[in-house]
């Protein structure tokens, strides 16, 4: 084993260990109540802020200028992408949004669905 190989091997093991720990932290949801507010963001612009508790069950479609679309369903205070026109449908298979560190992402449509700390409430206060 040459010195170069040793360094590379050590680097790979370190990176793998750090990733495993980080992934574990990210995937494990925080204890306590699940966050209430959801943001739907595209290219850093917030399209929708949704209060999951108050929102009725329904499905709505987000369409994009290039013709693509995502169907987003809200059901019993849960949110998920129910259908999309992209070929891989990774966003649909990701299932419902469970975790504040782990958003639903649709890469072809540059869409991010994530929990947010402060949501509709703050906005309502400013408009009231």
């Amino acid at each position: 084993m040459t010195k170069g190989v040793k360094i590379c091997l050590a680097a790979v093991i370190t990176i793998f260990a750090i990733s495993a720990i980080t992934a574990w932290i990210i995937v494990t949801p925080k204890k306590g109540k699940t966050p209430q507010y959801v943001e739907i963001v595209q290219e850093n612009k917030i399209l929708y802020r949704i209060d999951l508790v108050k929102e009725k069950n329904h499905t709505f479609r987000i369409e994009y200028p290039d013709g693509g679309w995502n169907d987003i369903t809200i059901e019993n205070s849960r949110i998920f992408v129910s259908d999309a026109d992209c070929p891989d449908k990774t966003c649909v298979e990701s299932g419902e949004l469970r975790n504040e560190h782990f958003p639903i992402i649709c890469l072809p449509h540059k869409l991010v669905i994530r929990f947010s700390e402060q949501g509709v409430q703050n906005e309502n206060k400013t408009t009231d």
Binding site: V41, E43, N44, H101, L107, K110
Partner: peptide, 9 residues
């Protein structure tokens, strides 16, 4: 592309 660090998760 997404212009969001959320992807880093």
């Amino acid at each position: 592309a997404v212009r969001s660090f959320a992807v880093l998760a």
